[in-house]
Computed example of a mutant assay.
Amino acid sequence: MTDDMSDKAALRSQLLAARARLTSHDVEAAGERLARGARELAELAEASTVAAYVSVGREPGTRALLDTLRVGGTRVLLPVLLPDNDLDWAAYEGAEHLAKAGRGLLEPTGPRLGPEAVCAADAVLLPGLAVDGRGMRLGRGGGSYDRVLARLARAGADPALVVLLYANEVVARVPEEPHDHPVHAVVTPEGVRRFERPQEPSTA
C-alpha cells in the first residue's frame, strides 16, 4: 500500500467515526440546510439534467435536494450499482420509486439508461468524505465514481462536479493519487465554496 493510500484509509476512518457520532436530528437538519445551499448554486439550479445519488445512513442528506430539483423541472439521474462496481443510471421519479439494494443503498426502480447516460448531465453530484482547498475529493474507496469521472473525460463531457459535505470535512489536504480528479464546488450546511477550474492550455 502506498503512503497516499494509507493516508486515505486513515482519513476515511477518522471522518466515518465523526459521522457515526451524528444523531438523526443532526443529519436531518444538515440535509435541509444543504438543500437550501445547493438550490442557490447556479451549477445545479440552472442544470437541465443532474446526476445525483440517494444519501443513506449518516451521509450528508440529498433527499430534500432530489425532490426540489425534480419538482423544479430538472431531470435527475440516480445510480444503480452494477456487479463490477460500475454505475448504471435511471431517472428519479420520486421517493416512492426507490427500492432497497445491496450495501444498504436505495436505487431507482425505473428503466436502466446505461452507464453512458451520465455523460448527458450538466452537473454531477458526487458522494465523498472530504475535500481540500484545491477541490481534491476523498471518496469511500470503492472506485465507482472514478469510473464515472473517467467515462466523462473519454466522452469530452465537462459537467460541474459538486460534492455535499459537513463543514468539518473541508480539510487542509486530501491525499491524492494520479487518477484523482478535483471537484468544482462543495456545499456544506454553512455555505458554498467554489474551486478554480484548471485553465485550458493555449493553442495559439
Rank of each mutant, 00 (worst) to 15 (best):
E28T: 15
G37T: 07
Q14W: 08
T68E: 08
P178N: 09
P201M: 12
V56Q: 10
E40F: 12
G142A: 03
V50D: 04
A185R: 02
T23S: 15
G133W: 11
A95H: 12
T74S: 10
D88P: 02
M136W: 02
E190V: 08
A95S: 03
A95K: 14
V27C: 14
D122L: 03
G104W: 13
L161K: 13
E93L: 13
E190T: 13
L98R: 01
R134C: 02
E116W: 10
S202E: 15
T23M: 15
Q14H: 13
P178E: 12
L16I: 11
D146Y: 10
Y53L: 06
T109S: 07
A95I: 11
A150P: 00
T68R: 14
A45Q: 10
E43F: 13
E177F: 01
S13M: 11
A117W: 10
R58M: 05
G191D: 05
R21A: 15
A47S: 06
V170C: 08
G57F: 08
G135K: 11
A38T: 06
D26G: 04
R193F: 08
V54L: 02
L138I: 10
G57N: 11
A120F: 12
D3S: 10
M5C: 09
L106N: 02
L11C: 02
A51Y: 03
V187H: 07
E177P: 03
D67K: 04
G57S: 05
R21G: 08
A30N: 11
A9P: 01
V76G: 00
G139Q: 00
V131L: 07
G191S: 10
V50T: 06
A167R: 07
L82Q: 14
T109E: 09
T109I: 09
R193V: 13
D4R: 14
